[in-house]
Design a protein around this nucleic acid. Structure first.
Lengths: 248, 248
DNA sequence: AGCTGTCGTTGATTTATATCAACAATAACC
DNA sequence: GGTTATTGTTGATATAAATCAACGACAGCT
């Protein structure tokens, strides 16, 4: 059973911040040994950002690397005429801002109140060269991101609106408490973002997203009147929908 | 000026294979020092594969990692009913087969005759831990792949058929010889894949791809009757089309 | 509490692209 | 070298999702 650490919400740069960090084991920071955590704390700065904060502007010099410790950040790319594609949501434990280029090729904006640890580029570089385990962990993390990106390409290129929404709800489902129950019913879905964000993530319009969610509600696959908190009634059914096994 | 090395097409496992490899500097192998190349050659095996060879089967145990030294490989994901999304084409210098999971989440098939160097998982692991520069190079490579994947998500989620085809042709354009000429006219595009592959990469049907290419030909943006060799007449125009700046 | 703006839903209509269909061109093969 | 299969093109029609439009439900503010 993992040790439960107290999470300190205040922005602190002290040596103990990382030692005490609740989400460390779920992030790249886990690549650094417990005895070296002071160095990690010194290399980074904890920030608290209000909803709607532009963390990264497309085309801007790539100076920072962030690790999300709470909240959700949306990553996106835009076309000159304003069309936007959200390429992912970075939740707790996920990083953002990694690039080999001089400038960012994407934007990032907080969805809700977000806490991040910010690393400046040179400091990140130092960590990568000094701590092979940290670099390995980051490589694994990026490799997983790439696999997720490929899954999303399948969604955007080949799935119907119904399949897209079902896949999305499935991906954002809070893993049900492993209380040994065979059937996973009534799973919660975390939706801190707006319909516009969901549409821009799924390559649809807000109207189509809204209609599709309404349809799923109508046919009892999901429930919940609250827009940001949906409950899945049949995970099996949703899974079938997501992969194109539509029984209707 | 980079030293021009002789490329040996025969499948050899000898110590000098990597030393003599023409494309080394364009791949992850460049992360290994010249003096250590014998180890790299021993860790990998050179294979020549005919067109249409299934290199990776979705869901199969992830045992190998490949580095492409010639030809083009298509990477894809499929839905149960056969719908397919090609997530990328791995050309010379690109790797494939990287994953943190036990099994591959994607498939891979050769487009034309392909030469690869195959690394078995344990051997790759060893290289990664023993040669930090190799790992760094791979991290950079994966980071770039992720940026490309995000660009492709923008294409699949938000671009029109015209914009998708224009973007594709632009991406596959052979970089024009830097002969100092101001205007880059008549650039060649490398299209070893079929229309089906292009359609599955762009999230379109073969008919739409065909029609769009015909339209671009009709309006003098491109030429070439040969299906696998197109010539771009106006790179500027194509670039405008790709980003939605359609002047028509 | 009442106003104001944002966010979400639902309905009517349009449209870009898919689908269906036929044929042309190229490549593969005996 | 002519036949067959594969690959690509073009046209007609259907359709899923976009667009246009109106309204409902909140959340924030004074």
């Amino acid at each position: 059973m993992p040790l439960r650490r107290r999470f300190t919400p205040e922005a602190r740069t002290d040596v103990h911040r990382c030692l005490v960090c609740e989400i460390r084991e779920h992030s790249v920071c886990n690549g650094i040994d417990d005895t070296e955590l002071a160095i990690l704390a010194q290399a980074s700065k904890r920030l608290t950002l209000p909803p709607g904060t532009a963390m990264i502007e497309e085309g801007t010099p790539a100076l920072s690397f962030f690790n999300v410790t709470s909240g959700t950040v949306k990553l996106f790319k835009s076309l000159p005429d304003g069309r936007r594609q959200i390429t992912g949501f970075a939740d707790v434990g996920h990083f953002l801002g990694l690039t080999t280029a001089k400038t960012y090729s994407f934007g990032a904006e907080t969805v809700d109140t977000v806490q991040v640890c910010r690393f400046l580029r040179p400091q990140l570089e130092t960590l990568l060269t000094d701590y092979p385990q940290f670099e390995r962990r980051l490589l694994d993390e990026v490799t997983d991101e790439l696999a997720e990106a490929q899954e999303q390409m399948l969604l955007l290129g080949r799935k119907t609106a119904r399949e897209r929404v079902a896949s999305f709800l499935l991906n954002r489902m809070i893993p049900p408490a492993p209380a040994g129950q065979g059937k996973t019913e009534g799973c919660l879905v975390s939706l801190p973002m707006t319909r516009v964000d969901i549409a821009d993530y799924l390559g649809l319009t807000i109207e189509t997203v809204s209609r599709t969610i309404s349809a799923l509600r109508r046919e009892q696959t999901i429930t919940g009147t609250d827009n940001h908190g949906i409950r899945v009634l049949s995970v099996t059914r949703l899974r079938d929908l997501a992969s194109g096994q539509d029984s209707r």
